[in-house]
Design a protein around this nucleic acid. Structure first.
Lengths: 341, 341
DNA sequence: AATCATTTTCAAACCGCTTTGGGTGTTTCA
DNA sequence: TGAAACACCCAAAGCGGTTTGAAAATGATT
């Protein structure tokens, strides 16, 4: 059933039917209802392809997933972010388009998205230090929202991010208040923006209490279980091991915990650990009581917010770069305790 | 730059230009080259929206991600599958459309996809026992490929799956050959098809050696770290604990390992563990040497294969239901050893 | 009742491509 | 040499909607 057929059945012109369904004012309320009823009865669904061509809007937003060619890693956070964003899109009649693109090829991917008109806007994932995509998209005049921020970018742009600096600042203070003085940092690779900010928060908190940094207990690694295990095991083996750790992700923390327990130490008693918890659906921090003390911030919620922001940018209702800084909660779990000694 | 403009520049009709670019025979080779050159020079990109309307093809495939309303879990395997499928799509000029849909609402989502013509085909994720989506899509005449299989479905359909039964059969035999007689199964929830098959393989292998099943060491749970830990801890606490375990996922296995080590036992010596390894990019089974002995099968590769299959179904080149059963490798790691005792 | 404003509806153009059904100039062949 | 076959190209009609500009119907005003 298409518009013309529906119009014929109603003895109306396609024009009127179209207007009736799209809520234009210049149509009699009575006929509007008649049209709506018929549309429902015949289960009329307007053809998206035609709408797109006619209106020039794509009614779709793109997510370009960078595939780091070096590591071939898909960010584990990604699936949940998408789930959040997807809710918003489908509520607003938008489609979500995914392109998985090797990161040596991103510019072309973005340009094509624009010039073929497949999307109205883009979400930028995994911003890196001084990310070139921001300049690119700005120049192309594609509405976009960054999930995270890109330290060092000169241009203004829209973003949704967790306050990583403050989260780790607070977490560090929490450990300091428990009496810990030797606090290790197990961070992600620092070409990722969030890792830089987390370190900044950590360093600032230590500095404020006059504690010197010790590179021996600060690592920056891929965020895998093995890396977490390896680095923490090394720290614990070394002289003057940390009594507490800040760990950048749940997965790394599983490795960290393993290293701790292997050493015959007990989590929360001998070594305190605070993690950052993105609330990934398949990696919950405990079923009801949190296991790890954590700075918690739902990445799914971030997805929702970013999608919302992008849609409002696309609609033109709101203009100019918008920014949203989500605060992480500090959740007290069983992995932290006072420093003994 | 659109087709008409390009045609004008070349002093040709849009017809000829279109044909030249799309490789139709009725155009002089010389002019074809002239057109190609001009297209490149002016960076002409045909408008996707127009192509879609004109051809009636969507040049897009849909992935409907079920969001289990009960658990709100996004399958962790999903991101890597998408990465694999995405490669194939972009190589073939197809877009990948994602809709995240609460699983109480799936039918409507599929119907809309069809009637609005946004996609040419669909990949079905997370098939369940006797999954109703298979009948639905067959009836709607939408080309589709299932990732996995749906035990109990009467209709024929196309699928790509790992030979879960054989993988677990072989893994069980491997443990039996090492002398283990008390082998536990830590499985996913059995509304998921793969869990059913894995159990079947396990049971068959035991039966062939005349070993009776013991429900006390067979669990079926959500595939989380905590569940892995909880269930294995319980097994080890109970009288007559298993000397070996089959664990359905890497994440569960991390929990299982924790339970083992907590108990003061050593992985691979006191308790042998074989896992199923989907080769998730962010959860590698060891960096170079595998940590766990595993039945390994790349879910990213499955994504590539499923996408390939779907595209060939869509093109009509091949017809009828196609099936692809991928065999899992048995990778020997450090988590298995002979049964002592 | 005639005029004007307002509401309601419609025909036709348009979005940018593909595709059908010719046309024109060249070859081929009887 | 004329007819048939072929190679190459084009005008125009879709695809299924939206949107513009104008007409028809209705209502208000004088």
């Amino acid at each position: 059933m298409n518009l013309k057929e529906l119009a014929r059945k109603l003895d109306l012109s396609p024009t009127t039917v179209s207007r009736a369904l799209n809520g234009y004012p210049e149509v009699n309320e009575a006929t509007r209802e008649r049209v709506a009823a018929a549309a429902k009865r015949y289960n009329y669904q307007p053809n998206t392809r035609a709408i797109r061509l006619a209106t020039g809007r794509a009614m779709a937003v793109g997510h370009v997933i960078p595939l780091t060619t070096r590591h071939e890693i898909v960010n584990p956070v990604f699936a949940d972010f998408i789930a959040g964003a997807g809710e918003v899109y489908s509520r607003n009649g938008y489609d979500m388009l995914l392109s998985v693109v090797p990161d040596d090829n991103e510019e072309r991917a973005y340009r094509e998205l624009k010039s073929r008109g497949t999307v109205d806007g883009v979400i930028v994932h995994g911003p890196r230090l001084d990310d070139p995509r921001i300049a690119l998209l700005t120049e192309m005049e594609v509405p976009f929202v960054v999930h995270g921020r890109a330290t060092g970018s000169a241009l203004p742009y829209s973003w949704v991010d967790v306050n990583n600096r403050r989260a780790f600042h607070r977490a560090t203070e929490f450990l300091l208040d428990l009496g810990h003085r030797r606090i290790g940092l197990v961070n992600g690779l620092e070409f990722m923006d969030f890792a830089i900010r987390r370190r900044a928060g950590y360093e600032q908190a230590l500095a404020q209490r006059g504690i010197a940094l010790d590179p021996a207990i600060m690592v920056s690694e891929e965020m895998t279980e093995t890396a977490g295990h390896r680095t923490v095991a090394a720290m614990l083996r070394a002289p003057n091991p940390p009594t507490a750790l800040l760990v950048s992700s749940m997965i790394m923390a599983l490795g960290a915990r393993r290293a701790i327990e292997e050493k015959g130490l007990r989590l929360g008693r001998d070594v305190s650990v605070i993690i950052h918890d993105d609330e990934l659906s398949y990696l919950r921090n405990g079923d009801d009581v949190p296991i790890f003390t954590a700075t918690r911030s739902s990445v799914r919620e971030a997805g929702r917010q970013a999608a919302d922001m992008l849609l409002s940018l696309i609609s033109g209702r709101e203009t100019g770069p918008k920014e949203l800084l989500l605060e992480a909660e500090l959740i007290i779990g069983q992995s932290t305790g006072p420093c003994k000694g």
